[in-house]
C-alpha cells in the first residue's frame, strides 16, 4: 500500500521504472503507452479522413503517396501501429475480464495467452495486408 502510494506520487515517470516490478507492471505501463500512441493516431486518422471533403483527386493522391511513395515509410509505421493495437487489445481483454471478476488470480497466464493469440492474428493481418503492397512471401 505504501509502495502504491509512493508510485502515485511519482506519477507518470514511475512507468519507466521496470526494475523488479514483474510482468503485471510491464503490461500496465505498455498498456498506457500504447493507448497514448493509439489516441495520437486516432486524431491523425481523423485529419487524413477530413481530406475526403477535398475530393477524389486530393484524397487518392494522399493515399497513393503514403502507400507507394514518396511517403511510403508511413506504411512501415502502419505495421508498427498494428502491433501496438493488437497488444493493447489483447491486454485490454484481460483487464476487462478482471473488471468482471474473471481470471483475477491468473494475471500472468491470461496475459501471455491473449498476447500469443493477438500476435498470431497480427501475423495473419500483416500477411494479407502486405500482399497488396506487392510484398510476396
Amino acid at each position: 500500500m505504501v509502495e502504491a502510494n509512493k508510485e502515485m506520487k511519482e506519477g507518470i515517470s514511475a512507468w519507466a521504472k521496470f526494475y523488479r516490478k514483474g510482468t503485471g507492471y510491464l503490461a500496465f505501463a505498455f498498456h498506457r503507452l500504447s493507448g497514448l500512441v493509439i489516441l495520437f493516431y486516432l486524431y491523425l486518422h481523423y485529419t487524413v479522413l477530413s481530406n475526403l471533403l477535398r475530393g477524389q483527386a486530393t484524397y487518392n493522391a494522399i493515399v497513393k503517396s503514403i502507400t507507394y511513395g514518396p511517403y511510403d515509410s508511413f506504411l512501415a509505421l502502419d505495421f508498427l501501429l498494428a502491433l501496438v493495437i493488437f497488444y493493447h487489445g489483447a491486454n485490454g481483454v484481460r483487464l476487462a475480464l478482471n473488471e468482471f471478476g474473471i481470471g483475477m488470480y491468473h494475471h500472468k497466464a491470461l496475459f501471455f495467452t491473449f498476447e500469443i493469440i493477438a500476435m498470431i492474428l497480427l501475423g495473419l493481418f500483416d500477411y494479407y495486408a502486405l500482399q497488396f503492397v506487392g510484398v510476396g512471401f
Binding site: V63, T67, G89, V93, F132
Partner: peptide, 26 residues
C-alpha cells in the same frame, strides 16, 4: 474496450484486406 475489439476487427478487415489495397481509396 470489448466493443472496440469487434468494431476495430471489422474496420481493419474491411479497410485493409477486403478493399484489396493497404489503404482504402476515395
Amino acid at each position: 474496450g470489448l466493443f472496440l475489439i469487434f468494431f476495430l476487427g471489422v474496420h481493419l478487415y474491411v479497410a485493409h484486406i477486403d478493399f484489396r489495397h493497404p489503404v482504402a481509396f476515395f
